[in-house]
Amino acid sequence: MSDRKIRVLIAKPGLDGHDRGAKVIARALRDAGMEVIYTGLRQTPEMIVEAALQEDVDVVGLSILSGAHMALAPRIMELMYESELDDVAVIIGGIIPDEDVEPLKEMGISGVFGPGASTESIIAHIRGLAARA
């Protein structure tokens, strides 16, 4: 169905302190017509995957500023796989060094967005994923 709403979970795993960026993204996605489930700070990988499952989202967006992405991402992807959520796309936004982008994609992360990425590019990426589904 073409007018089916795209549902996105926005979560902030790890211990870093603020969620301004995540909130900006959440609002931008809402303004692009998506339904955004916002779960806020300090989410464990288990909490994120459980929320993605219950909310039946199309996309999980992770905001990671702490530098812990190489530890968090594999754990989240593993849990997604165990929960049979392998058809749910995962994207990461935050401070990600260039050399980590390829390894993240190899883990199955569909998109990596650095601090310079525009919200438009994130929206376009998500729409592209939904169109493929």
Partner: peptide, 24 residues
């Protein structure tokens, strides 16, 4: 926009991990 930010779950983080609870 037809979109929405659904923020209630944010206040229910305590319930995570309990198989006797389901939030939508």
């Amino acid at each position: 926009s037809g979109g929405a930010v659904l923020g209630d779950r944010f206040r229910m983080n305590d319930l995570a991990g309990d198989k006797g609870v389901f939030i939508r």
